[in-house]
Design a protein around this nucleic acid. Structure first.
Lengths: 229, 229
DNA sequence: TTGCATTTCAAACATTTGTATGAAACTATC
DNA sequence: GATAGTTTCATACAAATGTTTGAAATGCAA
């Protein structure tokens, strides 16, 4: 069963190299050199380069998705069958952000790999991502239960914006760091999650204020604020 | 001056092909075939493939950035030297969203190309994007003028989230469409811009409500909402 | 037209890449 | 310990790709 060793060595080496240098300029030869195995081993164990990448990505995706659903389930049991919208959003963005951000995680190959996958988007990964919709539907369903009166459209936009903030923060953390000259602390993952969840819930619950047009109340709020300053 | 004709033909063909099929599987030979020019023409006129891609991207980027700054300037003149935070956010995300979304724009090669550039992130484009920080600083400065008392950190996070929602909507519009089963109207660009701007301003002005902890008021709001339903 | 610079062209180059092959080494079962 | 199945290995293959080359064509000024 030394075959498992080779397999694992390839997976580890590939993940490390892809994480460090991106999918674009890492060849199979680089990988087998790093893993100290023969070139043909990749095709023997995985069939093709794309299948190797796919296996790497699905492994990590399944991990994240499972964490998400676990958090969601815990929140629902905690709330007697119905999770709060805040907890749902937290279950949605928490695992991803925790996995990819933070100072301790800086050395985590898995995290850096997933960031790469989020940035570069190579064909085998794109194919897998397309199936992600089914997973998101579970969150949409939970949100519907948490906000029964809410229009479905608003719900999807809220879900979409939550993922937008989470993923964009992962993708562009370097830029945000540079733009803010280090003022934005990207190591304080808890605070980032709080921030994303807060804004998401806000986006989802806006328009609930009675006797205001659906999409405008906060603009008024902003104007009042400026007058106060 | 037939050289300009060749140059333009290459640029147009390249933009079209990249927009349609992505950077990954469009070769120089595909481009010159589409443009009806000789293979060597690309290297003669642009130096290299990467420089061709870079030229395509900078052209479109400069366009968008100019539109943004024009809107910002107009808003500032309109407000007597100081633009409202809402107008600033609108100037930030409006041009991009208008450029890449909408039914009329579906046929726009430029728009589809920029979406590709946003999704795939190939090296020459990444290099250019890194310089975008200087451009964003102008918006940060305008925001600082509009919200003098606000902490810089909050300001950067607000800017960051606004771009997150805009770009993620462009990147993942297909997925949102599928997830919402067509309920989210991605052709109504005005409404989308309003939505992004509203949430952004909300994120920026949150915590301004007196006697509430900085990052939590809306959670309470959310809970109240659920009780009402 | 002559002469010079620019542009086009076909062809070849030089690598790089993922993949396939067939023999050798190894492992486990009987 | 022989045998069948698995795994490893060096090597070769085939295709694709960006780039270069040097000659031919074209444009333009004197």
């Amino acid at each position: 069963m030394a075959s498992d060793q080779t397999r694992s060595a390839i997976l580890a080496a590939a993940e490390r190299l892809y994480a460090d240098r991106g999918f674009g300029d890492v060849t199979l030869r680089d990988i087998v050199a790093e893993a100290n195995v023969n070139l043909a081993a990749v095709n023997y164990h995985f069939g093709s380069k794309d299948e190797l990448i796919a296996e790497l990505f699905v492994t990590r995706s399944i991990q994240t998705n499972r964490e998400r659903l676990n958090e969601l389930k815990a929140a629902e049991e905690n709330g007697g069958g119905r999770a709060s919208i805040e907890d749902i959003m937290r279950a949605l963005v928490g695992p991803t952000l925790r996995g990819c951000l933070g100072p301790d995680r800086e050395g985590s190959t898995a995290a850096r790999f997933m960031i790469r996958a989020s940035i570069e988007s190579v064909p085998p990964i794109r194919r897998i991502k397309n199936r992600e919709v089914d997973h998101l539907r579970k969150f949409a369903a939970a949100m519907r239960r948490a906000m029964p009166g809410r229009d479905d459209t608003e719900l999807y936009w809220g879900l979409h914006f939550a993922l937008a903030m989470a993923h964009h923060t992962i993708r562009e953390k370097e830029r945000l760091l540079r733009l803010s000259e280090g003022k934005c602390d990207l190591d304080d993952v808890r605070a980032i999650i709080d921030r994303v969840v807060t804004v998401s819930v806000m986006a989802l619950t806006m328009g609930d204020v009675p006797s205001k047009p659906a999409l405008r109340p906060v603009v008024v709020h902003g104007r009042l604020t400026r007058q106060d300053l």
